[in-house]
């Protein structure tokens, strides 16, 4: 009885903030569990408590506190420098996992917060103070306070300003805008960042996009299509929105061009239209395309907000699922046997 599966992975694209990969030979429920955990149950750090000392900006304290919560904080393991927790029970996860460094505040034995469960960030910006160092022609312009002005007291955790260096080069700002200050205004606070998960508040969710779709299996009847005159082949392409179907080589002479699927993600939505059309065009009334969604292969698209690189994110999600299953297994094992005599 072959109950368990051996899923395969194929990485199509992988950058720090974006990944597309395929999982083969598994089930929709596994793909969906992975997706759900990545969105709502991977542990990250976010600002949770803010104490304002001075706020004469146009935004009130609550709005600024909310904006601070949404700034991604990145934990970076530094070889030889980061002091990991010594009370951790397992070494199964990678040391890049934030939980090897920090505890949840509720599980920590400190009174309020400490270096093992929280990170303190401070910010102090006064318009008049900064104006002294600004160029003469910019002196009266509003001062943009960004995530770059947040100073983290822990070297392992820092705010994420931009996704990529290219984005940083393009931007006129130094980071994520918190508030703009005018003449005479000042902002000073300390913020406490804590561990949490997306189920508590979406500021702890590490992804901005996390979707999967079944891999489409498309079969085009090349013989039948090549017998059609070029004008009719163009008609088939036009049955779908631009970019879904196309030719393999646009420069080749029309009779040598092959019809191919250009957008795997969209073809399933239009396959019925193409089917009906090709049935009408065909002398035998047979359709020239068949496409169906795979039950076992899935394509994931993931975008990280910057708090965790995507490859670590997927591993954290798998680890979290394994933890859940183990927890459940132990709990079922512990169930009393009294009414189980059938």
């Amino acid at each position: 009885m072959a109950r368990n599966r051996m899923p395969k992975v194929k990485v199509n694209e992988m950058e720090e903030h974006y990944a597309q990969f395929e999982i083969h030979d598994t089930d929709c429920s596994v793909a969906n569990a992975l997706r759900r955990v990545m969105i709502a149950e991977v542990v990250t750090m976010a600002v949770d408590l803010v104490t304002f000392e001075e706020n004469t900006s146009v935004l009130n304290d609550e709005i600024i506190a909310h904006r601070l919560g949404l700034i991604p904080l990145k934990y970076q393991y530094r070889e030889g420098e980061t002091r990991l927790r010594d009370d951790i029970r397992t070494t199964l996860s990678s040391e890049r996992d934030i939980q090897r460094r920090f505890r949840f505040t509720r599980e920590c034995d400190c009174d309020e917060y400490c270096q093992w469960c929280a990170v303190k960030l401070t910010l102090g910006v006064a318009f008049d103070e900064r104006a002294k160092h600004r160029p003469e022609r910019e002196k009266d312009l509003p001062l943009v306070v960004t995530s770059n002005d947040l100073i983290s007291e822990d070297n392992d955790v820092r705010p994420v300003h931009f996704e990529t260096d290219a984005e940083a080069d393009d931007s006129v700002d130094q980071g994520i805008t918190i508030v703009k200050l005018a003449k005479g205004q000042e902002l000073r606070f300390t913020a406490i960042a804590k561990l949490g998960i997306g189920k508590e508040h979406s500021k702890w969710s590490p992804v901005s996009k996390c979707v999967f779709r079944p891999q489409p299996h498309v079969h085009l009847d090349d013989d039948a299509i090549s017998k059609l005159p070029p004008a009719l082949r163009d008609l088939i392409i036009q049955a779908c929105p631009a970019g879904v179907l196309g030719y393999n080589d646009d420069d080749a002479p029309p009779e040598n061009r092959k019809l191919v699927v250009k957008n795997d993600a969209a073809i399933l939505d239009f396959v019925d239209d193409v089917k009906t059309l090709t049935q009408r065009l065909s002398p035998t009334g047979k359709s020239m395309i068949s496409a169906f969604a795979s039950d076992t292969n899935f394509i994931f698209d993931i975008e990280s907000v910057g708090s965790i690189p995507v490859d670590d994110l997927v591993l954290c999600a798998i680890y979290e699922l394994k933890r859940k299953l183990l927890d459940l297994q132990l709990a079922v094992n512990d169930l009393k046997d009294d009414d189980d005599d059938d």
Partner: peptide, 26 residues
């Protein structure tokens, strides 16, 4: 109960496998 436990350990080994395969593939 036994069938339930069996399913859970099957899933656990599936994710174990996925974990290793994903690391290698990356």
């Amino acid at each position: 109960k036994e069938v339930f436990l069996r399913s859970i350990s099957d899933l656990h080994s599936e994710f174990d496998y996925l974990d290793r395969y994903f690391r290698e593939e990356v």
